[in-house]
Every structure is written in C-alpha cells, then in structure tokens.
Amino acid sequence: MSLPSDCLHCSNTLSPDTEDDSFRDLIEHLSPPEKMAGLCWMAVVLAFSLSVGNTGAMDQNKVQKLAKYILNNCFLGEGQVSLAVNFPANLDQNSLHKISEECALIKDKIGQQDGLYKGTIMVAAKHKTIQSKSRQPYTEHAEERVLDNMQHLAANSAGKSLIFYSFLSPCTKCTTQGGRHNILDKIKDKIDKKGWNDIAFVFSKVYTRTKNYKGDVPLFEDTIKTTLENLGTTIFDDNIFHCYSPKRSPFKCIKCLSNASPRHVDENCLTNEDDLYSSVGRVGAHI
C-alpha cells in the first residue's frame, strides 16, 4: 500500500464515485484543514481495502469447463484422490498443454512417490496410512496432504484460478472444527488472503458411507449437509460444486450452497445419482 507523501494530494486520489455520502456530509461542515485530513484518512482506508486479498467467486460455467478438463486429463480412477490446480488467466493451447503434461506425470509417478505429486502448477495426493509408536495407525486424507504441499502454488497464485478437486466430498473428520486432522484450519492457513483471482472446491462423488467398528455404514443426509456447511465457512464460501456425468446426460456442475442466510444445500450434493439406481450404493467410503 502506498500513499502520496504530501497529504494535500490525497483529495486527488478520490473520485466522486469513491466517496461515501455519509462521509461527504460529515466533512462538509469541517474547516478546510480538518476537511483535508478527513479526505486523507478516507484515502488510507480505500488504499487499505484495495490491498487486502481479492480472492473471489468463480463463475459456474468456468468451474464446469475447468473441472471437465481436469477429469478428462487427470482422472486416476474410482478412488479417493485430491488435486489443486493453478489455471492461468489466459487459457491458451500452450497453457493447457502444460497442464495435460503434468496430468500425465501424475498418472505415471503418484504411485511411485508415496501417493504424492508436487508439480509446478498442480499438487495431487492419495490418502496415506501413518504408522506411529505413540498412537494407533491413522490416515492422512488426500485433501489434507494436498493442502500441506501447496506452498509453490500459493507463491505463484497471482492472477491464477484455483480449482481444489477431491474425488469424494469431504468427510466429517475433515470438516469438524478443532479436530486434529480437519482441513478447515489448513484452508485458512494455505489459501486465505493469497493472490488467486478466483477459487472453487469441486468433488465428483458425495461421501455417503464411512467405516467404523460396525464396518461400512451409511451416513445420514444431515451429516453430509453439515460437512458442506462447515466447508462453506472457509474462504471457499458458496464456491463448492458437485461436478459429475449423470446417467444418459452431459457433464454438469451443481452449486452446493446458496449464498443466502440461512444457507440452502442443494439435494444433488447430498446423494449420488448412482445410489438412486442401486440399493447397494457402495460409493464414497473413506478408509
């Protein structure tokens, strides 16, 4: 943030469109020196507001285009995987070629590199079981591993669009505030106030089943709804999408959360279309 060294020039930084009516009314009755000081203060506030992170919502058509490109080029099969991809503002053939090259590297190397790939414009990970002498073995989920390795993407985020993709929608472990492995805090740390132009969280399958001491059990829709609402408290806000190819229909992306209060969660983000055709519906079980 920079301001003119001579505060007498501050008034030139403000156009009539940037002045608030109530502020104008207030300074109208001040002496000339006081009025100039008020204009200078307004310039400080305006400059500060413009310097704060500008990460915004991504247009739904753009989300669908980028998500489809990721799934067509980087799809690693039916299993939990997460990716974060920096898309440049200018999506020309050269930039798309670079992305497709990294997708090919992911498919070739992710199985050889402990289920983790760190490239120049994307990070990808599968879950990993951690053996520990001090506690029971536990699982680092794919989303958590991607967030822990996004330093290069964040450092080169200026002017880019970020798609954070997960094959499965987040589980309760990932979206319970204060939990040891929740991704909400990591999103705040790794993505908040960085330089991306716009961002979106995309998933292909709704996480509808989990594993506990009883085995593979279904989740209630209210539980799934809560996970999405909790994810919506991060900078992703209402930019959360279920992108998939319905039976006998073209690929589409459903916006999961409304931006109204109280928030509405789209029912298409609470179940998988496969489940509507099958009584088994054994999709979306985290380890």
Results as ranks from 00 to 15, higher is better:
Leu231His: 06
Lys194Met: 03
Thr208Phe: 08
Tyr207Leu: 11
Phe203Lys: 00
Thr208Gly: 11
Phe201His: 04
Asp216Leu: 12
Asn230Leu: 06
Val217Gln: 15
Gly215Asp: 07
Thr233Asn: 12
Lys205Thr: 10
Leu231Asn: 06
Lys193Met: 08
Leu219Ile: 08
Lys205Pro: 00
Asn212Met: 06
Ala200Arg: 04
Thr223Ser: 14
Ser204Met: 05
Ser204Trp: 00
Gly195Cys: 05
Asp198Thr: 07
Phe201Ile: 01
Lys225Ser: 11
Arg209Thr: 08
Leu228Gln: 13
Val206Gln: 10
Ile199Ser: 07
Asp198His: 09
Ile224Thr: 05
Lys193Thr: 05
Leu219Trp: 00
Thr233Ala: 11
Tyr207Thr: 02
Phe201Leu: 01
Asp192Phe: 01
Asp216Gly: 04
Phe220Leu: 11
Gly195Trp: 00
Arg209Ala: 08
Thr227Gln: 12
Glu229Phe: 10
Leu219Pro: 07
Lys193His: 09
Thr227Glu: 05
Phe203Ile: 00
Thr208Lys: 14
Thr233His: 09
Asp192Ala: 08
Lys194Asp: 03
Leu219Gln: 15
Phe203Val: 00
Asp192Thr: 04
Asp216Trp: 12
Thr208Asp: 13
Trp196Met: 02
Ala200Lys: 02
Gly232Asp: 02
Asp198Lys: 13
Lys205Asn: 07
Lys193Asp: 15
Asp216Arg: 12
Ile199Val: 14
Lys211Leu: 10
Ala200Tyr: 03
Gly232Val: 01
Phe203Trp: 00
Asn212Phe: 01
Leu219Tyr: 05
Leu231Ile: 03
Thr208His: 10
Ile191Gly: 12
Lys193Trp: 04
Glu229Thr: 10
Val202Cys: 06
Leu228Tyr: 13
Asp222Met: 02
Thr226Tyr: 03
Val217Tyr: 06
Thr226Cys: 03
Phe220Val: 02
Lys225Pro: 00
Glu229Ser: 12
Leu219Glu: 15
Ile191Tyr: 07
Asp192Tyr: 02
Asn197Ser: 13
Lys211Phe: 03
Ala200Val: 07
Ile224Leu: 08
Leu219Asp: 11
Tyr213Val: 09
